[in-house]
Design a protein around this nucleic acid. Structure first.
Length: 321
DNA sequence: AAGATCTGCAACCGCATACCA
DNA sequence: ATGGTATGCGGTTGCAGATCT
């Protein structure tokens, strides 16, 4: 079927709308109502394409449009719906009264998407990114080492990480050298240097983590909750299971092996981690307790996101293996 | 202070689909 | 059933203001 041009483009104005044009369009639609976009510009005295008029009306002039910042609830709704629907902006917009698909699309691309990426969440799949999990593992191991930098650890890291991630790791190691207390304080606070971590595969299988129900999302995608459990898995717990395995893509065994560092020293024992830190005074899954000693939200977000993920209920860990 | 770069958003483009004769 | 037209939708672009160097 041949496609006809939406309008005669000769002599038609493009670009930003002037207040006078807005007024003409608004006045015309108030009298005649929206629709008949092909003939509307001529009847309204506008040198515009009908498509342009429709867009201007639906995205800007419509009286029921809500302006200003997206609320927390709106943002949460967008993330949840996007996880289910993908880039169906018009459908998502239908669930947010007063918001247009264009506005939601722009907000996603300029704010939410970037934030998810920063936090190690793939904005397309809404799942944690494997490279960040690996990075977390390497950093957790290396930063917890009492020596400043263990060269063998970094050598190991090089086999797992791409250059960009390695560069990032170096940056954090530098940070540790400049301000070791801050780094270690956080690591200790979130038990990244203890043996309280959980083995990923056995934990996931036993608790049915792979059964997706679509529930349990939080607006902060670094903070997925797992409603059927008193505890939440973190990237560190997940990635700890990779430590000592030169090929991190190898399947994780379901037994409870002793984990070893690259130099052969035991770091974690799966047997020791069956019990969970549910009695911790500062639960790890509480976003309000992430980095309560940091000064800004950005610091909290950027720093904590490197080390901490909580795994969405619907996440199939096999996707990352 | 000025140029370069980044960011956010309005608007455009082209394709898909619905509707109608 | 077919073809023309109108409308909807999602990806992309371009510009203005903000921020950085």
């Amino acid at each position: 079927m041949g496609r006809s041009p939406c309008c005669d483009k000769n002599g038609l104005k493009k670009g930003p709308w002037t207040p006078e044009e807005d007024l003409k369009l608004s006045n015309y639609i108030q009298i005649h109502g929206p629709g008949n976009w092909r003939t509307l510009p001529k009847n309204a005295g506008l040198q515009r394409c009908g498509k342009s008029c429709r867009l201007r009306w639906t995205n800007y002039l419509r009286p029921d449009i809500k302006r200003g910042r997206f609320s927390f609830e709106e943002e949460e709704t967008i993330i949840q719906l996007h996880g289910v629907l993908g880039n169906k902006w018009s459908v998502i917009a239908g669930r947010l009264p007063g918001r247009t698909d264009n506005e939601i699309k722009n907000y996603w691309n300029t704010h939410i998407r970037k934030r998810l990426l920063r936090n190690g969440i793939d904005p397309v799949t809404h799942a944690p990114r494997l490279d960040f999990l690996e990075l977390s593992s390497i950093l957790g191991l290396t930063l917890c080492s009492q020596s400043v930098v263990n060269a063998s650890n970094l050598l190991c890291a090089q086999t797992l990480l791409n250059p960009q991630l390695l560069s990032l790791a170096n940056t954090l190691l530098s940070l540790k050298q400049e301000n070791p207390e801050l780094v270690l304080q956080y690591l200790n606070q979130n038990q990244l240097c203890t043996t309280s971590a959980l083995p990923c595969s056995s934990m996931i299988n036993q608790s049915g983590l792979m059964q997706a129900t679509g529930e349990g999302f939080s607006s902060d995608m670094t903070n997925f909750s797992y409603p059927n459990s008193q505890e939440n898995l973190t990237s560190s717990t997940l990635s700890n299971a990779f430590v000592g395995q030169p090929n991190s893509t190898a399947p994780v065994q379901s037994e409870t092996p002793k984990l070893q560092s690259p130099d052969g020293n035991q770091i974690y024992s799966f047997d020791s981690v069956r019990s969970t830190p549910t009695s911790s005074p500062t639960p790890m899954h509480s976003s309000s307790t992430y980095m309560n000693r940091c000064s800004t939200d950005d610091e909290i977000e950027n720093f904590s996101s490197l080390f901490k993920f909580e795994i969405p209920e619907g996440l199939d860990i096999n996707d990352f293996m």
